[in-house]
Design a protein around this nucleic acid. Structure first.
Length: 535
RNA sequence: GGCCCGGUCGCCAAGUGGUAAGGCAACGGUUUGCAAAACCGUCACCCCCGGUUCGAAUCCGGGCCGGGCCUCCA
């Protein structure tokens, strides 16, 4: 079954309109940079990053654009509250946004065009719409004339009359019809100079929708292959973009319209007005970017994501994150644990495992674990069903854990080489699936394992003049405790059953483990030796 | 009021005609000096009522309930 994608325009799944090897232009509406990004803002980027990864895997040459809205009413208001300028606020919030994307491993965006850097392109498009009669200037503003566009309403599937009937905005004297929307907003008295730009209609700034039309055209051309964004943008934003672009360019604006579902917390959409916002920065101390990404990808992108309730602990204090995010964190631990196991068994970190690759058919077809890969791909072929794909990943990991248990792969004395080779093949498939989902599965930064391998005790031993490296000291002390405990444990295990010292020695080993657990360090005794990890 | 989505185990969530993936939680085991991790087992008549069909969670009709949008929204 070739790739199928649901398009909002046709309201059904369609064969993807491009062939592997062809270029694909993808435009996704980005943020208005006036507040720190919350988890909901990450849903689209994570989804479309995954879409791009899979399309690239299938051989498409994807160019992905995400716009940054850095001039608008909310920015002006917020900058005023903070006693700062719009450019300063926009720059700071853009940096925050980009940092959040990085933390969630959203790496596929090729261009982040800023609205303020594309005013001439917007003016040009507005000018063309005025010339051709689709738009009219009025008192310093310019409006798009909805009545001139017979297709208006086709994306959100509504008649223009319905839209007008429900319109809650006051009808401006300047508009011909209530449904008309601003392409250009004339500067109002008292607005800071930094948000006033020159145009043939006087000083002012662009309307919200025109930036996407103009920047999409500038970078990707008149027709996009994929236009994406949150479900709540369908109307008016995308409907208006579509109307402007098709009126100005005379060709279809986008082949496929993809809209992602919204995040819900309990009964409510997560939104500032409801007061239940979880900023990315609030979540990251409690959950890795990987785990947040996994949380988003567990659900099909068109469904709303349930964050569940927000439970309290025994003392009535609210937990740091909503229930379902914490459940996702726990679930994701299965993969993190598996990645560590891969490191132990193969001697290389999971990140270093080579995926089999889409092209290596001869080798992959012979592999026992390819059927998992096929089922995984079938899910993604079906409108990027990441939830189903994640289920397959769990099944594969369980199968490989079983294999590792049966083959005693963690016991240096008993490990069977042929089983180990099979495990390595399976791990390569897991690596590929994780790459497609954008899950890095990097080993957590253990406070001692890192240091032990790198700087180690060297900076401590550096002596006079060398600043003491506290990480290195902690690392060394931790290793010392592990070694000491190991010796005690060996003695205890070696002691005869009736030896009264036996229990006492074990008590000491347990004391060390419990005390370290309090510090957040988990010690695990395995056939190959004791390992420790933070968390 | 209009348009559009949904209702699948305590919670989350795949499944769109062939007899219910997966995860979290729970319980019982295996393993372990004890743990941790892992593995095994137990745990769903798919909101209700009709209809179509050899066969329906899936299709059709009618209810009930929830959500999104109807010019700030990712």
């Amino acid at each position: 079954m070739p790739l199928q994608v649901y398009s909002t325009l046709s309201r059904k799944k369609e064969p993807f309109p491009r062939k592997p090897g062809e270029p694909v232009g993808m435009y996704v509406c980005g943020p208005t940079v006036y507040k720190p990004a919350h988890i909901g803002h990450m849903v689209g980027p994570v989804i479309f990053d995954t879409v791009k990864r899979y399309l690239a895997y299938l051989g498409y040459k994807v160019t992905w654009v995400v716009n940054i809205t850095d001039v608008d009413d909310k920015l002006i208001a917020r900058a005023g509250e903070l006693k700062t300028t719009v450019p300063e606020l926009a720059e700071r919030m853009t940096a925050d946004y980009l940092d959040c994307l990085k933390k969630l491993n959203v790496t596929g965006v090729d261009h982040f065009p800023k609205a303020t850097a594309h005013i001439p392109q917007m003016v040009e498009m507005i000018g063309k719409l005025v010339e051709t009669g689709f738009a009219y200037p009025a008192g310093g503003d310019v409006y798009f004339d909805v009545a001139k566009d017979p297709d208006y309403g086709k994306l959100c599937n509504r008649d223009p009359e319905q839209l007008e009937a429900g319109s809650r905005i006051e009808v401006s004297d300047r508009k011909h019809n209530p449904g008309d929307f601003a392409l250009w907003k004339g500067a109002k008295p008292g607005e800071p100079a930094e948000v006033q730009f020159d145009s043939p209609w006087g000083k002012g700034r662009p309307g919200w929708h025109i930036e996407c039309s103009a920047m999409a055209k500038a970078i990707l051309g008149d027709t996009l292959d994929i236009h994406g964004g949150g479900l709540d943008l369908t109307f008016p934003h995308h409907e208006n973009e579509l109307a402007q672009s098709e009126s100005a360019n005379g060709v279809p604006f986008a082949r496929v319209w993809m809209h992602n579902g919204l995040l819900k917390l309990g009964k409510d959409k997560m939104a500032g007005s409801v007061g239940n916002v979880v900023n990315v920065a609030d979540a990251l101390p409690h959950m890795t970017g990987d785990a947040i990404r996994f949380f988003i990808l567990q659900t099909h992108y068109r469904s709303p994501i349930e964050m569940g309730n927000w439970s309290e602990d025994k003392t009535g204090r609210r937990l740091p994150l909503p229930d379902n995010m914490l459940a996702a964190k726990t679930a994701f631990g299965t993969f993190e644990e598996f990645a560590r196991r891969v490191g132990r068994v193969l001697g290389t970190p999971f990140a270093g495992v080579k995926p089999p690759g889409a092209g290596s058919a001869a080798r992959t077809m012979a592999m026992r674990y390819v059927k998992f890969q096929q089922r995984f791909n079938e899910h993604l072929d079906d409108d990027f069903n990441t939830g189903g794909a994640v289920g397959v990943l769990f099944e594969l990991v369980t199968a490989l854990n079983k294999l590792a248990d049966a083959g005693k792969l963690e016991d240096p004395d008993k490990a069977q080489p042929e089983v180990r080779a099979e495990f390595a093949d399976g791990a390569a498939v897991v690596r590929e699936m994780c790459d497609l989902l954008g899950l890095k599965l990097e080993p957590p930064k253990t406070i001692f394992a890192d240091a032990a391998g790198s700087a180690g005790g060297r900076s401590v031993a550096g002596g006079a003049g060398q600043p003491l490296d506290s990480q290195a000291i902690i690392s060394g002390l931790m290793q010392l405790l592990i070694d000491l405990r190991g010796n005690l444990r060996d003695q205890a295990k070696g002691a005869a059953k009736d030896n009264p010292l036996k229990k006492g020695l074990f008590d000491q080993t347990d004391l060390i483990r419990k005390r370290l657990a309090v510090l957040g360090v988990t010690l695990e005794d395995r056939p190959g030796g004791t390992t420790g990890r933070a968390g």
